[in-house]
């Protein structure tokens, strides 16, 4: 008898009662929510339980919802039961001013870098993580770039004098900057002489 979403749901409610909530099944995957201090307890239960056996961490990531006051960051975990081949997803919402959650590294080695990545991009603080440092971005970075307050670069921005890339500001391809902050075309620069920088 293989495991079904209904059975998992039943088993979870049996164990945790009202603490697990918001059950959904988008595109067939059981999805639910737990309080943020419950994530490790829940994963431990899912891992150890004779029937559930969720022993494989597929992935974890964060999502930023700036409009959800008090629960701006969502941690999303995907777990896989390889014996019965069923996946589940659960979420824990965090306050962006205090984004603390327990680490899953004690249970899954795979969580180590995934959590570092999540910290790197969203600033989620994993309590108990052995080495919570930035992983893909430079160490000197002082913000968390995947948060929604940092939009991607606007192609028409004017504040950046980016000659190296020939974009932004008043500098474009084939133009040269002059002393008096105007630009002239590359082809005409011979005629201008000392006006050039």
């Amino acid at each position: 008898m293989s495991l079904t979403n209904d059975r998992i749901k039943e088993r979870l409610i049996e164990k945790f009662g009202e603490q697990v909530s918001n059950f959904e099944e988008p595109y067939g995957m059981l999805t639910f929510e737990v309080p943020k201090d419950m994530n490790l307890k829940l994963m431990q239960f899912l891992y150890d339980d004779e029937e559930l056996k969720f022993k494989f961490l597929t992935t974890l990531c964060a999502v930023h919802y700036p409009d959800n006051k008090g629960r701006e960051l969502a941690m999303v975990y995907h777990l896989h039961n390889l014996t019965d081949n069923i996946r589940i997803r659960f979420k824990a919402y965090l306050d962006i001013n205090k984004p603390d959650i327990f680490t899953a590294t004690k249970l899954f080695e795979a969580a180590n870098w995934l959590e570092r990545e999540t910290y790197d991009f969203y600033g989620v603080n994993f309590i108990g993580h052995p080495n919570l440092k930035r992983i893909l971005n430079v160490d000197e970075m002082d913000y968390f770039p995947m948060r929604k307050e940092y939009p991607l670069e606007d192609q028409t921005r004017k504040d950046k004098d980016d000659e190296m890339f020939g974009r932004g500001g008043s500098i474009g391809y084939g133009t040269v900057k002059t002393n008096d902050d105007t630009t002239i075309a590359e082809s005409e620069k011979d005629n201008v002489g000392d006006k050039l920088v």
Binding site: T58, T59, C61, V63, H64, V76, H78, E109, A110, N112, W113, L114, E117
Partner: peptide, 28 residues
């Protein structure tokens, strides 16, 4: 397992797209 976790809020672009990159995970 190359995974794509896509959240759409009904707009033109994904609200969030997460790639599960197998290489990143097992290089640990």
């Amino acid at each position: 397992e190359l995974g794509f976790y896509l959240i759409s809020d009904g707009g033109r672009t994904p609200y969030r797209l997460h790639f599960r990159r197998p290489c990143f995970i097992y290089y640990q």
